[in-house]
Design a protein around this nucleic acid. Structure first.
Lengths: 226, 226
DNA sequence: GTCTATATTGTGATAGAC
DNA sequence: GTCTATCACAATATAGAC
């Protein structure tokens, strides 16, 4: 049973179905719910399993979150809230393009490594529940200075300037964004396929990530050389 | 209601809940099942919805496939059987590395474009049902000459030779494979995110794919220059 | 092979005691 | 706030006529 969380001070046995009413119960439930939703998907998750993993009764889930759907929405919001601000923070920085690429690759791999199944969960969730997009949009809108739209424009200007000065090949900004995102996110989202196709186990995957963390920035930048 | 299939001669209204017993019923059911499983996920799919979309009764699903689980397994096998051989075919060809990269990008985008939600479905399915990996492995094993292992070795040799001759930068073969796969697959798997982050609609996504089909090979090869 | 019931279990949700 | 017990219905699966 993998604990996908990494909050400090979050250790309690999943099957402690007694009086473990120390910390915040609501947080315990949300935490258990994330684990279950991440590994089973929203439709496959069972309220009973969440209750057991939180060490509480099933009725409490409804007391705190009213319905499975609301609980699922809360979990998704929380997961997306971990990823979006991190992305915005890096891209919004005043670094050079080269530093941004390296900073993004490093920060993304370092962050997601602690919750390696989050990307797969978020993608699967969006695939099967397009209505979650509104939550994503809201999170993005709340970001300082309406970040996503602004960041895209700034990045486009930077790429254009580099192309004009001849220090980089011209590349459409959307292609560039998707390239970087692809190279960072896909290995996590496709973890099971990598296990099958390349024979990875946990340890091999960790080594692969170490190697990737170092090699990816120069791979990306090399592709942009004129 | 999107029809994710592209088999020739497969047009019947989904709500024709009458006597449409022309073609092969089993195939009709499998076809409808794929549509429903792809958009709802295995756990979220309802046998009733599949029956309705196939224009038959729910009991027939059990007559042909015995249980939902077996039907799900059949759908997954069929989906994976579309993707794996295509990949093997291209990589196994006797082309140069440059031609292989271009051939793979073109073939993958051209193929998957007709079933743009397949990658998302396969990834989500593997994420939530790791047991499906065995099916993937079986399909891979059946490929001529135990293809996957062999292909990886051949590719590694090719990359090594290029590195030795100085015509390409050295890159670990697994990183290279994952890079190419990431850049091709991710845009499909993350379609909803692209819609949200870059404001794509169906038409914009198609234009994006056209552009990508042409730009991606040179992006990849440029990254490998010494 | 295909249909109309119907059996049977699973599962989200609520009532009400403590 | 937390529990036990239970409701109500959704969903898979089967029986049996045609």
């Amino acid at each position: 049973m993998i604990d996908e969380s990494s909050e400090p001070g979050a250790e309690y046995a999943g099957d402690t179905a007694g009086a473990a009413s120390d910390g915040d119960t609501e947080r315990r439930i949300l935490h258990a719910a994330r684990n279950v939703f991440v590994r089973r998907g929203t439709a496959g998750a069972r309220m009973q399993e969440i209750a057991a993993e939180a060490g509480v009764n099933q009725a409490l889930l409804h007391y705190y979150f009213r319905s499975k759907e609301r609980l699922a929405a809360a979990v998704f919001r929380e997961a997306a809230s971990r990823l979006v601000p991190e992305v915005v923070r890096i891209l919004g920085s005043a670094l050079s393009l080269e530093e941004k690429v390296e900073g993004f690759v490093h920060a993304y791999i370092d962050t997601v490594r602690q919750n390696p199944f989050l990307p797969g969960y978020v993608l699967a969730e969006l695939h099967h529940h397009p209505e979650r997009l509104t939550a994503l949009r809201e999170i993005s809108r709340v970001q300082p200075s309406d970040a996503l739209r602004t960041l895209r424009e700034r990045l486009a200007a930077e790429l254009e300037e580099r192309a004009r000065s001849g220090s980089m090949r011209r590349i459409p900004v959307d292609q560039f964004i998707v390239n970087v995102a692809s190279l960072c996110v896909f290995p996590f989202a496709a973890r099971p396929v990598l296990d099958a196709a390349l024979g990875f186990d946990d340890e091999a995957f960790e080594r692969f990530l170490d190697e990737r963390r170092e090699a990816l920035p120069s791979f990306i930048l090399a592709a942009l050389r004129p």
